[in-house]
Design a protein around this nucleic acid. Structure first.
Length: 320
DNA sequence: AAGACGAAAGTGGTTGA
DNA sequence: TCAACAACTTTCGTCTT
C-alpha cells in the first residue's frame, strides 16, 4: 500500500491515489489498471495479473446524487486527522490557580486564566456532536477496511454507530471501542461473525471492552441478535487453513447434526466450529494439527479435544 | 521430534442470594 | 456485593506416530 498522504482534497477518488505511482506491469509492460473493490484487488487491464491485493478503499462512504449530499456524505478528508481533530489529545486548563511549580498565580493573571478556561471549554464543546460523528465514521471506515468488511455490512455498522451516537451512547466510551462494537454487531447480524479476538487485534481495543460495549449496544438498541452458530465460522476458518470445500461442508454437517441433538447449548461456538473442522479434516484425509486449527479459531487445543470427545460420544457418525 | 492426550490449577464472566 | 459455578485457558508430564 502506498503510504503517501499528499492528497488533501475533500472527496478524492481512489483512482487518483494510484495515479502518480503506476508502475509497469511486469508481464505485459502496460500501465492500465483495473480496480476491483469487491475483491479489493488491483489488476492489470490487459493481462489480468493481480498487482496489489487487500487494498484499502479510501473513497467516499456513500453514493451521492447532488452537491448537498456529496458534502454531507463524504467523510471528512484524508485518512490522517492531523488537520482536523485533536486526535483525542484534548488540552484542558487546570482549575487550580497555580502554575506548574505550584506557586499561586498573580492576581493580574487570574482573570486571564479564567477567560482562557472559559474559551477553551467552549471551543471544545461546540459542534462536538458533528465532529465526533465524523471522527467515528472515519474510524469505522478504517477498521472495516482492515477487516475486509465491505458493502452492506459496513453500511449496517455505520448505521448502528450513528444511532448510538444520536442516542448519546458514545459518551464516556472511546470512539474506537464503540466503532469496533458496531462492526462486531453488524457482522453478527449478517451471519458472518468475527471473533472478539480478531476485532481486538485490528482495532487495538481490548477484547473485554469490545464485548462489554457490544452487549451494551445490543441492550440499548434492542438489536435482538441470536447467539452465533458454529457453522457461520466454518467457511472462514477453513479458508484460512487452506481446506477444501468438501471438508467445509462435512464440518458444517457435523455442527448441524450436533445441534439437532441439542449439543450447542452453553458452549462457545468457535470451539465447536474448530472441533468440527478438525474432525472433518481427519475424516477426509486433509489432516491438520490441532494446533493449527486452534490458532485459526482462537481457542486452545484442549478445547478442541474436549469438544471432539463430546462429539464422538454423541453418536452422529463421528467416530475414529 | 512433533503431535496428541489428559490432569490439575488458574482466569474472567455470569448468576443468584 | 459476594460466593458458587461453568467454560475455557495455561501448563506440564506422558504416550504415540
Amino acid at each position: 500500500m502506498p503510504t503517501k498522504t499528499t492528497y488533501r482534497t475533500k472527496a478524492f477518488r481512489p483512482s487518483d491515489i494510484y495515479a502518480d505511482e503506476v508502475k509497469e506491469c511486469p508481464d505485459c509492460k502496460c500501465t492500465e489498471r483495473n480496480v476491483d473493490y469487491q475483491r479489493a484487488e488491483i489488476s492489470c487491464k490487459k493481462c489480468g495479473l493481480v498487482l496489489d491485493e487487500e487494498i484499502i478503499d479510501l473513497g467516499p462512504e456513500w453514493r451521492a446524487f447532488d452537491h448537498e449530499q456529496k458534502n454531507k456524505r463524504t467523510r471528512t478528508g484524508p485518512p490522517s486527522t492531523y488537520m482536523i481533530s485533536d486526535k483525542g489529545l484534548t488540552t484542558t486548563i487546570d482549575w487550580k490557580n497555580k502554575d506548574i511549580y505550584g506557586n499561586p498565580i498573580s492576581e493580574d493573571n487570574k482573570a486571564l486564566m479564567y477567560r482562557l478556561r472559559k474559551l477553551n471549554k467552549r471551543s471544545r464543546i461546540s459542534g462536538r456532536g458533528q465532529r465526533s460523528l465524523a471522527l467515528g465514521l472515519s474510524e469505522l471506515h478504517r477498521q472495516s477496511s482492515r477487516l475486509g468488511i465491505l458493502g452492506p455490512v459496513r453500511e449496517d455498522a455505520a448505521r448502528i454507530y450513528r444511532i448510538a451516537a444520536r442516542n448519546n451512547l458514545i459518551r464516556g466510551r472511546s470512539v474506537e471501542s464503540m466503532v469496533a462494537a458496531s462492526i462486531y454487531a453488524a457482522c453478527r447480524r449478517a451471519n458472518i461473525p468475527r471473533t472478539l479476538d480478531e476485532m481486538a487485534e485490528m482495532s487495538m481495543v481490548p477484547k473485554k471492552q469490545i464485548g462489554k460495549n457490544y452487549r451494551f449496544l445490543s441492550r440499548e438498541l434492542n438489536l435482538k441478535l441470536k447467539p452465533t452458530s458454529p457453522a457461520d465460522y466454518i467457511p472462514r476458518f477453513a479458508t484460512k487453513l487452506g481446506l477444501s470445500g468438501e471438508v467445509q461442508s462435512k464440518a458444517i454437517d457435523i455442527t448441524h447434526r450436533a445441534s439437532q441433538k441439542g449439543f450447542n447449548t452453553g458452549k462457545g461456538p468457535t470451539g465447536l466450529a474448530a472441533a468440527a473442522l478438525y474432525i472433518a479434516s481427519l475424516l477426509l484425509g486433509e489432516r491438520k494439527t490441532q494446533k493449527d486449527v486452534a490458532n485459526v479459531a482462537g481457542v486452545t487445543e484442549v478445547t478442541i479435544r474436549n469438544r471432539y470427545k463430546e462429539l464422538a460420544e454423541l453418536d452422529i457418525g463421528v467416530s475414529l
